[in-house]
């Protein structure tokens, strides 16, 4: 029973604090899943995030659904998804009249702005952890090569993330499996 409550809490906090939509909640989810509850290693979380990015649809619910399922089956999935979706949706439906008055208020923009540097720091720290884990697992050469090529393809050539992730999976299967 405790696992459902923990799953709910782990996804409730990112859902209620992540200003800036799903992507802003990723580092908060990582904090809960990897560092607080130790459900996954950095590597496992990275794999889930990579496949999440290779598939379409909202990212926060893909992460919540899979992690909930991996930890506690279908009920775990439901607990994690409910915690991700319900709180802010209920607030929106209940307070829509009140929120309507504030929709153009400068404070609302300040809210998203104020948490942005903190989210950026969390994202930056995650970036470094993933690079460290990659370096420990497959060495500097492979890490720099894959990171460099994928940055070039994603950012300079606007290649669709699916192809870059599939390419990296293939590269890993061929050259990093030994």
């Amino acid at each position: 029973m405790i696992i459902y409550w923990e799953l709910f809490l782990a996804f409730f906090l990112p859902g209620i604090l992540g200003y800036g939509g799903g992507p802003a909640t990723i580092p908060l989810i990582e904090y809960e899943v990897v560092h607080r509850y130790n459900w996954m290693t950095v590597e496992e979380f990275g794999e889930v995030l990579a496949l999440g990015n290779a598939l379409p649809g909202p990212i926060a619910t893909k992460m919540a659904g899979y992690i909930g399922y991996a930890e506690a089956g279908i009920p775990g999935m439901i607990a994690a998804l409910t915690a991700t979706i319900a709180p802010s949706l209920i607030l929106m439906i209940a307070l829509v009249g009140l929120l309507m008055k504030f929709r153009d208020s400068p404070k609302v923009k300040q809210l998203s702005a104020a948490v942005r540097p903190t989210i950026a720091v969390l994202l930056g720290a995650m970036t470094i952890r993933f690079l460290e884990t990659a370096y420990e697992g497959s060495g500097a050469l492979h890490t720099v090569l894959i990171a460099g090529v994928s940055f070039y393809l994603l950012e300079k050539r606007s290649v669709h993330p699916v192809w870059v992730i599939l390419g990296a999976l293939l590269y890993g299967a061929l050259f990093l499996g030994g």
Binding site: L131, T133, L170, G177
Partner: peptide
């Protein structure tokens, strides 16, 4: 080879997160 796939995809996730960090 499946463990290799996990290793191969980590730097890509790092790049995506790095880009997201920069945009934030």
């Amino acid at each position: 080879w499946v463990q290799g796939m996990t290793q191969g995809v980590l730097p890509v996730v790092a790049v995506m997160l790095g880009v997201l960090t920069w945009s934030f």
